[in-house]
Design a protein around this nucleic acid. Structure first.
Lengths: 128, 128
DNA sequence: GTCTAATTGATAATTCGTTATCGTAAACTA
DNA sequence: TAGTTTACGATAACGAATTATCAATTAGAC
């Protein structure tokens, strides 16, 4: 982290983001980082996220109807899976969208980009 | 519309939804219906949308990072295109997602459903 | 260890979308 | 048409997420 002081709060927050298997919301970061650091304030989570974003370390992930989530930059093109049971969001490597950038669709829509979210049950929620 | 009175406000709002080429937000409905009906109140738009939803005539469409939008029910499986220039949202017929319901992905994710949004320029914004 | 400025946690304030309130206007009924 | 009841528009109130404030704490420099 650039010109910021190294505090245990920021370490904890960044670690959760780096170790997560999907993008995390403010509430999720607060809950997870707060496990090893009781008393962690929600304002600190907001402040740290803002700082990490400004220095380009993390980026926002928006899913339909959800609060913003955050993930480290540099993950490359990927999509997300939302478990309807445990309500966690996971990274996926697959990209089953057969529309390269530059394609023009019927109707004249020139495609630059896309966002895909898959819904269902994660493995932990399917097993039991 | 079921047990509601037939007012010009409700006619105008329902017409905009039926004639639109994509789902509309509350602000978009208010603006469009307000053209032929100056003075249309925003509360009336909210009330009418709520009533139409309760009687099953329209449903919500959530796009990443956007306010809820509304569209008539019965359109079948489809996705949406968001123009980054005019910021309008359009219906698409294509579904370029090759993942049938019931598929299990690497990692054990059991897929039930998906939501896809394409981004780019609509034909009107590409031409000029 | 001491000093100083950045950071923290608690919480007040803000923002924005939505809902509730209320007096006036308009739609259905007889 | 007159009467009754629903709907309207304006705006206050609300809820949830985010940001600002501020006294107390702590990291980093000397």
């Amino acid at each position: 982290m650039g010109g910021m002081r190294r505090t245990k709060q920021r370490e904890a927050i960044l670690n959760e983001l780096l170790n997560a298997d999907g993008p995390l919301s403010v509430a999720e970061i607060h809950e997870r980082a707060g496990c090893g650091l009781p008393g962690l304030g929600i304002a600190t989570v907001y402040r740290t996220i803002k700082a990490l974003r400004e220095e380009g370390g993390i980026s926002v992930v928006e899913l339909p109807g959800e609060e913003p989530r955050y993930e480290p930059v540099g993950l490359g093109h990927h999509h997300h899976f939302r478990c309807r049971s445990c309500e966690q969001t996971f990274d996926l490597e697959v990209c089953p969208v057969g529309i390269p950038t530059g394609t023009t669709l019927p109707g004249g829509y020139s495609v630059e980009d896309h966002s895909l979210t898959l819904y269902g049950r994660c493995s932990a929620c399917v097993k039991p």
